[in-house]
Amino acid sequence: MLAFNHVDFTYPGETEKILDGLSFQVQDGEFISILGASGGGKSTLFRLLNGLETIQGGSIEIDGKNIQGLKHYCSYMPQKDLLFPWRTVEQNVMLPMEVAGVDKAKRKKDCGHMLRRVELEEYAKKYPRDLSGGMRQRVSFARTLCAGSNLLLLDEPFSALDSITRINLQEWLLRQWVKFNRTVLFITHDVEEAIFLSQKIYVITEKPIRSVEQIEVPLPYPRTRDMLLQPEIMRLKEELIHALRQKVEA
């Protein structure tokens, strides 16, 4: 379980608070979307979880332990694929294991397994430039899985893709999630994406962030896109858009 306890955060050298006494929890195995307008502080949440920034008050805990004493507790997937152009697909996927000091034979084996899972095994020896945007994101996802932790932090991973690729990848990600049984925190500013993917949506509507509004998505898995057309879901979508828009106008 992941818990933010009364977390305060301001970027060093800035005056504007980003988080102000924020608390929330995420249970193991959940798929949670964090929904909010751009510039609201969503990515900052991940930077804090990652250890790239340090909180000034409160605590972030995983299974009751402060993350400051932990290692390899989360795997982060950035918005841009950030594949290294001098590495083949396979070498890119193995990078986190290389850094973690996993021996070569196991790296090879896990990487092959991962590439099969993202359906890209025939591209192992290709370079990122030989791949389409959607494929590159899948490689980036495989690399994230190879970082090995149970908590996946996905920061708007599909936002740079065209809409068809994006829809395909959303469906693909759900199939993956069912298979690998890990906790997913998924940042998005797209209401429909949040509804389609997640069990719960944490909505950010204020700045600094003092709390998140938690909304359950009343849909079973496996999901199909026509479920989005149910009246109840349409209403939820309108509500969410309304909530986000208020924030922008404020």
């Binding site: 790239l52 795997s75 982060y76 850094v99």
Partner: peptide, 21 residues
């Protein structure tokens, strides 16, 4: 790229690894 460097950091890479890789 700073983002690439930060990604390496999230994998637990130190300065030496970041330098060579």
């Amino acid at each position: 790229k700073r983002e690439m460097q930060e990604l390496m950091q999230t994998y637990g890479a130190g300065r030496l690894r970041i330098f060579f890789k």
